[in-house]
Amino acid sequence: MTKTTHLARLRIDPNILSNRADLITQVRAISPNLDAMDTVVSSIQGGMDEAQQRLARLDPSAYGKSRNHLDRAVTGLSPFVRHGAMSTRLIRDRALELAEPKPAEKFIQQLAWREYWQRIYNQFPDYIWHDVEPYKTGFRASDYSDDLPDDILTAQTGVACIDQFLTELLETGYMHNHARLYVAAYVCHWRRVKWQAGARFFLAHLLDGDPASNNLSWQWVASTFSHKPYFFNLENIEKFSGEATDTRFKTNKVLAGTYEDIYARLFPNLEPQS
């Protein structure tokens, strides 16, 4: 066989990691089909320095108390874990250096969620793109749209907090777990779009985009991989978000109401929830 690989070896300027503009130019050069309109780069940088800095901020005991709050201490390690730059095992070991097993348990349990989804991916690869079960929303899969509307793709739904979460996804490639749940529920239940369309959109943008954690979580929200649909109300967002999230009634009207009201609105074919 002829040796052709010398042609394909990339020449790398030794200083490239300290010059992000050059680095982005190089990524563009080696991605010839990338849309020229796609110019957004995350502030989250790849590499071990950044991963180690995030690990150094880990506080496993505090995590358990505040992990559901959009403005508190989660690690932001998922992009590094997703690409195997840092293992869940190493992170767990660090957590156990910092805290006893009991206070560290909630955090380690979250790491185990990743292992859980991976295990299911291994056992049932078809679950990644196919409905595991029918929707339990009173609708059939064919009642849901195949594609995401433009206003979701561009973070201009007119629902202020959803637009903020989507903007964060588009600009940083990261979202807090709770924000992912809110957006996924908004897409599936408020807008009645198939979970697969939302999952594809997340995988394109999330730096941690992972077929198992992402798609199976989408199915969980949609109810095709759980016994009931996940949904929320504005009050819940208010409770878990900080000052930075716009949770005013007038800019988020469709999300406002009691759980019973919203359930009746979103799932009119189901028995009313008491």
């Binding site: 990691l17 680095l23 780069v41």
Partner: peptide, 14 residues
């Protein structure tokens, strides 16, 4: 998206 590719490229360079 570009941002995912940049992140992967940075991990590779590192």
């Amino acid at each position: 998206a570009l941002k995912r590719r940049v992140f992967i490229f940075e991990c590779a360079l590192d």
